[in-house]
Design a protein around this nucleic acid. Structure first.
Lengths: 179, 179
DNA sequence: GGAATGCCCTAACGGTGTTAGGGTAGCGCC
DNA sequence: GGCGCTACCCTAACACCGTTAGGGCATTCC
């Protein structure tokens, strides 16, 4: 199911995107260059353009995959639990920690929505909207808190000793109320 | 007072940082290259290295200035208002909207604290800690929410019609409680 | 056999951060 | 007056980046 976001790509393009993902996550954002990626594939950088229009398209494909996986993970979390919001938030944090570089790529700049696989952004957002009973305001506030916590944590902006589990819990309690 | 963060730099280095700030804010992050900056100054890129160790040092100087200005603005907001947290959050949002590129630079990656002017990060964080009466957990949760809202807004991640003023208000109300 | 498709190549362009090594104008000091 | 020092700038080059132009070579299909 995780390959649907790439269904419009040729098989070779899919391979390239998969390799790019491993490269990004294993060696960090600076390693995700067309030349480094080509090295990894055993070809020259210019050959990549035979399969993907440019680097933006590559990044959009990676982001699409990320959204699709989020949709799956978050939907599952909501369904499995009787405290759906807390479960979803835990899944959100886990996603970011497991693949911090992909998470950064997905959030650090405005999205090129015209390059994304259609529907993936909405699919990733849906479980939270479900969990809040369709309350968009609350969903947005919770999302903002979760993203803020995740990215400040990834960027090591909290003091070393900070008890972030407690901060998460208190923040969620406040924003969810009796949800 | 906004120049204290640069007090360890030579006068020429200060000029370069000021020019860099204008360039960053007026033409965006891609414009902040050593060559573009040098053009703006009427010199060659390599001459900049006479005054600043490298680009990281330049960015650290910009970030230091940003923290110092935040400290001043946030401190003022807290002192002027009888709803200090709400006032501080409004100032936080205003800072980010007025200089989005500097705000991004300040938050998008882990800080090189060894390169910052000493004390500026703490000075910027102090007003919020004051406003929460020293409650670090609450301060962190509020900060995470505020940063999340700001950066998602800057990155245009909310739907076009979203009523963000309401989201801000509800989020703050929930996190602040009767504060 | 001939055409089309898929995939890769070399070579180059203009951009990036950065370094090595050299120059020159102005100032204080003997 | 001349010496040295400081502040400031220079050219040339290196290795990297994304990207394009133009060419080659096998496999597949008619």
């Amino acid at each position: 199911m995780a390959f649907h976001a790439l269904s419009r790509l040729t098989p070779r393009a899919r391979e390239i995107v998969q390799t790019a993902r491993q490269l990004l996550e294993r060696e960090g954002p600076d390693a995700l260059s067309m030349r480094r990626l080509a090295d990894q594939l055993g070809i020259r950088a210019s050959s990549i353009y035979e399969h993907l229009r440019d680097k933006q398209a590559l990044e959009a494909a990676l982001i699409s995959v990320g959204f699709e996986e989020q949709a799956e993970l978050f939907g599952e979390a909501v369904h499995r639990s009787d405290a759906p919001i807390a479960a979803l938030i835990a899944a959100y944090r886990a996603f970011a920690r497991r693949q911090p570089n992909l998470y950064r790529l997905m959030t650090e700049r405005p999205l090129r929505r015209d390059l994304l696989a259609s529907g993936v952004e909405e699919a990733a957002a849906m479980p939270l909207l479900d969990a809040t009973g369709g309350d968009r305001e609350r969903a947005r506030a919770i999302w903002a808190f979760a993203h803020g916590m995740v990215i400040l944590e990834l960027n090591q902006r909290f003091p070393p000793g900070a008890d972030l589990d407690t901060t998460w819990r208190k923040g969620i309690d406040a924003l969810v109320g009796t949800g």
